[in-house]
Simulated scan of single mutants.
Amino acid sequence: MFRALLLHDTDDGVTPRLDECSEGDLPPGDTHVRVLYSSINYKDALAVSNRAPIIRGDFPIAPGIDLVGEVLSSTGDRWEAGDRVVGTGWGLGENVWGGYTEEVRVRADQLVALPEGLSPQQSMVIGTAGFTAMLSVMALEDHGLTPESGEVAVTGASGGAGSMAVALLAQAGYEAVASTGSENAHAYLKTLGAGRIVHRDAFSGGPARPMESGQWAGAVDAVGGDTLATLIAQLKRHASVASFGNAGGHELHTTVLPFILRGVNLLGIDSNTCPNDRRRAAWARLDALLTDELLERMTYEVVNLGDVPEAVHEVLDGASRGRIVVDVQGG
């Protein structure tokens, strides 16, 4: 028997419950994993609190879009018992069971090896947030960004992926400029390496003109909407913005002028179905850039599986500063 925090579809709505399960309760999958840690992302908080229809799979389902664990068995030749693996994306915790369970079955090709330099807990401090941020930095570098290029703007910088982007850029030698509306996040962002901080209002109203003065050598955007439109108008010649969020809206009102007159690039970041070769490269880079001290600084708290329904409100209310890790086997 093992424990799982399952979401049940009841007459009162989607409700979380810590259940005792057996292996027969697990949905199909060729690789059986003992989950060690997960994390609480904004999407997880929405799912557990039933504030948004995140779940697209069959109920009951274990949410948790991140997991790290130890392989118990696998029918293929990709993994052996005892291998430590990381799972993010591929619909985990949305379409199929995710990380909020002590055991899970996952497709072998939806897992990557835990980097040797990271502990299981550290990998979940990183999680989808850090993985997405790393993909963003790598995409900018693929399109010519170097530390000598100039300042790189990060919007939504007080969020999980935004703050990770600030830290990764700083660790890689870039001048990171953090944009946030949370004044109490300024000190935290400075400790992560932000060179300076600008208020989100500088971007959120949209650009005054189709092309404004070129300020940014690159940008990581977690907001979308008018904020992304402003960044596009303010990019330097041949600069790029990596986009992965829509907290500011999913519509984008811009013109072709920055693209055809300055040669700027809009780079979409999809961490959910990212190919495995790219995943492995991103995790290797994360292992190389993030120090133990920095990961400790970015850990807001570690909670047990039964504490998740309460802890998600810290994420939704913006009370957490850093990442919440779930110790799945704890408690």
Rank of each mutant, 00 (worst) to 15 (best):
G318F: 04
P60F: 07
I269L: 09
R285L: 09
S320T: 03
V166T: 03
V14F: 05
A202T: 13
V326G: 03
G268V: 11
A165E: 04
W97Y: 10
Y188H: 12
G98V: 11
L189A: 02
W283L: 09
L6E: 10
Q121G: 06
G13L: 06
T31A: 10
G206I: 08
V264E: 04
V166I: 15
A139G: 06
D221G: 11
H186Y: 15
R17S: 15
A247K: 06
L67T: 01
D317S: 14
D327K: 07
L18C: 11
A284F: 01
A139H: 05
G263D: 10
V256W: 06
R285S: 14
V308Q: 03
V137S: 06
T101E: 03
I55E: 02
N265M: 10
V223W: 01
N184F: 12
T128W: 00
V35P: 01
A153I: 15
G218L: 07
I324T: 08
I126H: 00
R321E: 00
V312F: 02
A47M: 09
G193Y: 00
A133I: 05
D226T: 10
V328T: 08
T31W: 04
R196W: 06
I54T: 12
G224R: 08
H186R: 15
S74M: 05
S73Q: 08
N265E: 13
G249Y: 04
T15A: 12
S240C: 11
V86N: 01
T31D: 09
L257A: 14
L295R: 02
V220R: 07
L261F: 13
Y174D: 09
I269H: 09
I260T: 15
L135D: 02
A133Q: 09
G214D: 09
V48R: 06
V302D: 03
A288L: 08
M211D: 04
E314H: 13
G69Y: 03
L290G: 00
G156M: 09
A153L: 15
R84H: 14
F244N: 03
S119R: 07
W90C: 11
R279N: 03
T255E: 09
T155C: 13
R285Y: 06
D317G: 13
V106D: 02
E301Y: 02
H253C: 10
N276A: 11
V86S: 00
L140M: 11
D292Y: 00
P53V: 11
G24F: 11
W90R: 14
D58Y: 08
R105N: 15
D58A: 15
L252V: 15
A45Q: 05
H199S: 14
P53C: 10
V315M: 08
A208D: 12
L7W: 07
G93C: 08
T146S: 13
L118H: 02
V68H: 01
P258W: 07
A108L: 06
G156R: 03
I197E: 00
S179G: 15
R279V: 08
V71Q: 03
L92E: 07
F131Q: 05
P115G: 08
A108E: 11
L67V: 03
I260H: 12
